[in-house]
C-alpha cells in the first residue's frame, strides 16, 4: 500500500517538474519573440538575455534550465535551397491545376511533359479523331510485317554465285 502511494507520489512529482520545465521552455521561446535559434549568436547559453529573464522567475532545476537555454540558443534551422523550393512550388502548382495527380507526384510517378507530348504526337491530343489513330497504327503494323517478310525471303534464297 505504502509502495503504491510512493509510486503515485513519484509520478505526480515528475508531472509537476515536467510542467515547470515546459513553462520555462515556453518562456524562453516566447522571450525571443519566436525568432528562436541564433537570435544572439555568440552569447553564452548560461547568460540569460533581457528577454529570457522572465523565464528565470520560473522555479526549475538549474541544470535543466542550463540545458534548455543551451538547446534554445544553439538550435539551428536549416532552410532548403531556393532552387528546390521553387521546383516544388512549380510541381505543386501543376498538381493543383490537375496536370499532375498529387498522389502520383508524391509517389514519384513519371509523367510526360505536356508540351513535348503535344508537339511530337499531334494526333494524340485530346479530341483527335479515333480513326486517324487506328489507321496510323494499322499502317505501322503493315510496314513492320512487310519488312519482316522481305528479310525472311532474302535469307531463304541461296546467294547468286559470281563467276
Amino acid at each position: 500500500m505504502r509502495g503504491a502511494i510512493g509510486e503515485a507520489l513519484r509520478i505526480d512529482l515528475l508531472r509537476v517538474d515536467a510542467l515547470r520545465t515546459d513553462a520555462y521552455v515556453e518562456a524562453l521561446i516566447a522571450g525571443t519573440g519566436g525568432t528562436g535559434a541564433g537570435a544572439e549568436p555568440g552569447r553564452r547559453a548560461s547568460q540569460p538575455t533581457a528577454e529570457e529573464r522572465p523565464a528565470a522567475t520560473i522555479e526549475v532545476d538549474p541544470e535543466i534550465a542550463e540545458a534548455a537555454r543551451l538547446l534554445h540558443a544553439t538550435a539551428w534551422r536549416p532552410h532548403p535551397s531556393f532552387r528546390f523550393e521553387e521546383r516544388v512550388a512549380a510541381r505543386l502548382a501543376a498538381a493543383a491545376r490537375g496536370r499532375l495527380s498529387a498522389e502520383d507526384a508524391a509517389a514519384g510517378t513519371i509523367v510526360a511533359f505536356p508540351a513535348a507530348a503535344a508537339a511530337v504526337v499531334p494526333a494524340m491530343r485530346p479530341g483527335a479523331p479515333l480513326a486517324g489513330i487506328v489507321s496510323a497504327a494499322i499502317a505501322s503494323a503493315a510496314l513492320s510485317i512487310g519488312a519482316a517478310a522481305v528479310l525472311a525471303w532474302r535469307r531463304g534464297r541461296p546467294r547468286r554465285r559470281v563467276a
Binding site: 508531472r15 520545465t21 515546459d22 532545476d61 535543466i64 542550463e66
Partner: peptide, 18 residues
C-alpha cells in the same frame, strides 16, 4: 502531459551529459 514528461526527461539526460 506525456510530451512534457518526454521533454523533461530528455533535458535531464542532456543536463547530465553537460
Amino acid at each position: 502531459g506525456a510530451v512534457r514528461v518526454l521533454l523533461h526527461r530528455a533535458l535531464r539526460a542532456v543536463a547530465a551529459d553537460l
